[in-house]
Design a binder for these strands. Structure first.
Lengths: 139, 139
DNA sequence: GATGGGGTCTGTAGCTACTACAGAAGCAAG
DNA sequence: CTTGCTTCTGTAGTAGCTACAGACCCCATC
């Protein structure tokens, strides 16, 4: 019977510490149904098991890689249904990669523009700034 | 008297067409007080003048350069108070530039990780994917 | 068995920067 | 005067959380 207490599972705070996901965020993930409703103690506190811990880690890692919640939902659904092919997952990843590259491209452009503006600026005490002029003149 | 009608000003749709800013967004900008409350027609429709058009263009250009609303608010306040130095504006711009570069750095890392994962994937029909394994194993 | 101090609960509101309605009213041309 | 486009206000929704309030749970210690 002492084994039983052993398998009690993790309260939400443990989950948070192990994964680095905020407690409120874990509950949010449950609300939006990418995390399941876990067991509860007699008093009503959440008790997670190891699978749920792995799932949360998966979500965390994917988020850090910039996958949107919907993309993650798609990945998890494939996993849950046990019907996915490597090709499908690859596709989703490549699609995400493309959008990341788009973002980088956009930001580089922006960087250039900012550098250009800043270079023309004397940084002096004068109340007259080519940066503002640039911002005002367009269109 | 015909000159008078000439200076009537632009309805909100004109503003939108000239600047490319959505009508709802223009009203939103008024609500959050980065655009002023414009004159109204007898019937209550907004009537903008040329200064307001320039201001909206400024906001649009700045947004496209990735400045946050708060950064834009700061710039506009300097302009409105007529007390700013080129140095201040330069500082704000450089600060923004730094955050843009941070974002690029982060996205590049992310790009690398995604490319690495995708490279290991056979893209085949097998229900077994190194991408998912990578996502699941961490932490 | 009472007490104390954590952790956790639900529900709701806030954040950024918009966008999307509904339902009413303005406006200009014919 | 009618038609049809534009504009009005106010509210709610989007993503992905975060931050409360006020109540309750849990466990250890006395």
């Amino acid at each position: 019977m002492s084994d039983f207490t052993n398998t009690r599972g993790y309260p939400i705070g443990e989950m948070s510490k192990h994964t680095g996901v905020n407690i409120e965020t874990i509950r949010y993930y449950e609300r939006i149904k990418i995390m399941p409703q876990p067991d509860r103690t007699a008093g009503g506190n959440r008790q997670y098991n190891h699978d749920e811990l792995k799932r949360l880690s998966f979500i965390k890692t994917s988020r850090e890689l910039g996958f949107s919640i919907n993309e993650i939902r798609a990945l998890l659904e494939m996993v849950d249904r046990q019907d996915f092919t490597c090709g499908e997952v690859h596709g989703l990843t490549i699609g995400h990669l493309a959008s990341v590259r788009e973002k980088i491209k956009g930001l580089r452009k922006l960087e250039k523009a900012l550098v250009g503006m800043a270079a023309e600026c004397s940084q002096g005490d004068v109340p007259n700034c080519p940066i503002l002029e640039t911002l005002f003149e367009a269109r």
